[in-house]
């Protein structure tokens, strides 16, 4: 464990807590893409299957349980509990255009042709594009609540910090995982436009208003 990965995991944890608090306090899921949240639930489910077969640390296990649990709670909030406030007209990204190519790529490009490894690879590839429905929804509605912007900033920062973690691990531990690094770069690059808007607008008290 290093500081980059720890801060990254905390940033990821913060993003999920911000999202749940926004939903619970405002009793609304307005502006939140249910499709992205479904993709995140798939990402965690396919990535943490080794939860039951291997033990790395208390931290590792508890974070995996938390991420899986909260991802399903979030999907439940959107499609059941706060369904009336779900803006399905603006959440129209065709996720099958993400899942099918990512599934095919995981099948072809992986470290080892075993079920667990292919599912892990699928999860890594899927996570890199899972935010697209949310970013698409923000561009369609033309704006995002500031709390949603904070959620996205924390979520985007987590993988950017993981990139620093991989640089650190490469130099100090000789650890290198090309699949995770490439997907992490794609994932972080997708946030760049949002990061720019967040830093130039939200931090100055303005709301994000993308050209619709």
């Amino acid at each position: 464990m290093n500081i980059f990965r720890l801060v990254g995991d905390m940033s990821h944890l913060l993003a999920i807590i911000i999202l749940l608090m926004k939903m619970w306090k405002s009793r609304s899921v307005a502006g939140i893409s249910g499709k992205s949240q479904i993709l995140f639930a798939i990402v965690f489910t396919t990535r943490y299957l080794d939860l039951f077969t291997s033990f790395v640390s208390i931290y590792n296990t508890s974070m995996k349980v938390f991420f899986i649990g909260t991802s399903y709670v979030t999907v439940y909030f959107i499609y059941q509990h706060f369904k009336p406030t779900y803006d399905s007209n603006h959440d129209t990204f065709r996720v099958e255009f993400l899942i099918v190519p990512v599934g095919g790529l995981a099948f072809l490009v992986n470290h080892e042709f075993s079920l667990l490894e292919i599912l892990w690879t699928f999860s890594i590839y899927l996570e890199s594009v899972a935010i697209l429905p949310q970013l698409f929804m923000v561009s369609k509605t033309g704006e995002a609540e500031s709390i949603t912007s904070h959620y996205l900033f924390a979520l985007g920062s987590y993988r950017a910090l993981y990139l620093l973690n991989w640089i650190y691990r490469y130099y100090f531990e000789g650890f290198f995982d090309l699949i995770a690094v490439v997907a992490g770069c794609v994932q972080t690059i997708l946030y760049c436009d949002f990061f720019y808007l967040y830093i130039t607008k939200v931090l100055k008290g303005k709301k994000i208003s993308l050209p619709a």
Binding site: R5, D50, S54, V56, K64, H111, F175, L178
Partner: peptide
């Protein structure tokens, strides 16, 4: 590159 299971990263 070493990338064995279990993955120690989240």
């Amino acid at each position: 590159c070493n990338h064995s299971l279990p993955k120690d990263e989240l």
